[in-house]
């Protein structure tokens, strides 16, 4: 078996004295889509923050494509091919759509190519290219954020709660795009509260609870227990 694109080993992280990650083990095989599910407060977003370099672990190791990364800054990781679309609206509200897209060229793809790709996937962004991103609808903002995942040709893509606050139809549309990205061979780790939506595009799934990965498996197995985990009362 080839080296996984991402391997997390016994990862611990804390906000002050409150430990949020309590020994996370997780692998994302090359070219695979892994859905990371779990109830609120399980530590999913924190895990993504540590992987993307926004937060420092207290102990444990992260290997990206077999390389041990420690203390790397988010911008360094980003230029190395790790694309993170964080939770919430991850666009610059006071910049126009086109300017947002131009900033996506840091990962090495020329700006003109970024624009072409983004507009061909999302024609709606082309219509609004001079509009400030903050005035777009929530779904359009998320399309813009996703455009970075499309255009930056990432080695690994981290998606955090793409669906937050969006109507189901729009979520479906967004995940169709994520599916297309996956078909081009990009490895994706997707954190999602809508278990079913994420499981539809996933090759593997992992469930987090209480700061640990408590179950991993095929989407079907995991899917059958997710309703229990989320609505069943796991805090």
């Amino acid at each position: 078996m080839s080296i996984p694109i991402l391997e997390v080993v016994d990862l611990h992280a804390a906000y002050g004295r409150i430990e949020v990650l309590r020994g996370v083990d997780l692998r994302v095989p090359r070219g695979a889509v892994v859905a990371l599910l779990g109830p609120n407060g399980a530590g999913k977003s924190t895990l993504l923050k540590v992987i993307s370099g926004q937060m420092e672990q207290t102990s444990g190791d992260i290997h990206l494509a077999g390389v041990h990364v420690a203390g790397a800054k988010p911008d360094e990781l980003a230029r190395l091919g790790l694309t993170t679309v964080p939770e919430g609206r991850s666009v610059f509200p006071n910049l126009s759509v086109e300017e947002n897209l131009q900033l996506m060229s840091y990962a090495g793809v020329p700006a003109s190519q970024v624009l072409d790709t983004a507009y061909s996937y999302f024609p709606r962004l082309h219509e609004r290219r001079y509009q400030l991103a903050g005035t777009l609808s929530g779904g359009e903002q998320q399309m813009l954020a996703l455009a970075r995942a499309l255009t930056s040709d990432p080695a690994l893509l981290l998606l955090d709660e793409l669906s937050m606050g969006l109507a189901p139809l729009i979520v479906d549309e967004l995940y169709e795009t994520v599916g297309q990205i996956a078909q081009t061979g990009v490895s994706i780790l997707v954190v999602e509260q809508f278990a079913r939506t994420a499981l539809r595009i996933a090759d593997y799934a992992a469930v987090m609870s209480g700061g640990r990965v408590v179950a991993t498996g095929e989407p079907d197995e995991i899917g059958s227990i997710m309703a229990d985990v989320i609505l069943g009362g796991v805090a």
Partner: peptide, 14 residues
Amino acid sequence: HVAESLDETKVLAR
């Protein structure tokens, strides 16, 4: 289907 499973689930602790 989910509604059914909702009724069944009371077992899980945090």
